[in-house]
Amino acid sequence: MSASSKNARLNRKFDQIRRMEESGELQKKKSGNRALRKLLNNRLAIIGGVIFLLILLACIAAPLLTSYSPKAVDMKSILKAPSSAHLFGTDKIGRDVFARVLYGGRMSIAIGFGSALGCAAIGVLLGCYSAYRGGWFDSLMVRISEVFMSIPQLILVMMLVAILGQSAKNIVIIFVICGWGSCFRMARSQVLSIREEEYVQSLKVFGLNPFVICYKHILPNALSPIIVNVTLSTAMFILEEAALSFLGLGVPMEIPTWGNILNAAQDMYTLQNNWWMWLPTGIVVSLFVMSINFMGDGIRDTTDPTQQG
């Protein structure tokens, strides 16, 4: 990394320290609290990280944790309450709910993370270049992203689902089409501010390839908000997948996903009588989304000094 970027970072660090001093002086009686709060915030992030990893690993290691297949129908044991044989019980056609939650988690997480990553990849790639290059390319890209962002997301999703049809792959494509715009804008504004920094100017003078400057020297300095964005949108896409399933527009019902499992337990009878079909799944989804949110917050707090506490 270049010396000037180190310098910039050092400067930022100093700024941060000074600000901490100032606020510390201002609020003498709360100075202890502030440190506590920082710690706690990190603690929330840590708790979030632990939950996240637990659920993620459990889903990845699904075949080790359960011997049932999420699709194996067993008409002889339908709607069984949780027991040692079936940890989360069985559903209306005798499938093991625990296995479905684990395997469904794989799919839901893959959809959420894949979509977030796809959005980030496209958004960052275009955003960095667009901001660095400027000119007509930049204004064209901004226009295009505005078009996509002006169509309310759910509406675009509904139309695309009707066109492309329902499949896990299509859902990811649709989420990326609908979601790249905000990532683009964020990456672009980050790069715009970094572009004017001295080290970039000096690299230009050296005559480096603009792509190299853009992606090798500028991008890494804009990375932390992008990482935050990827984590937070993973959570958002997982929730969105569930909402689409509820509207009957999500992943085809035969593929277990968290949204589909919850959706299958929609009727009042199941809600009132077969709690194991929805409660564990609902808790796992909410916990997972929450853990991602805490992690995202934590990362933001530690990397972005302008965000306080």
Partner: peptide, 12 residues
């Protein structure tokens, strides 16, 4: 949902 379930059963 029931149709979906039935398809899974028939497949099995």
């Amino acid at each position: 949902q029931m149709t979906q379930d039935l398809m899974a059963i028939i497949q099995q």
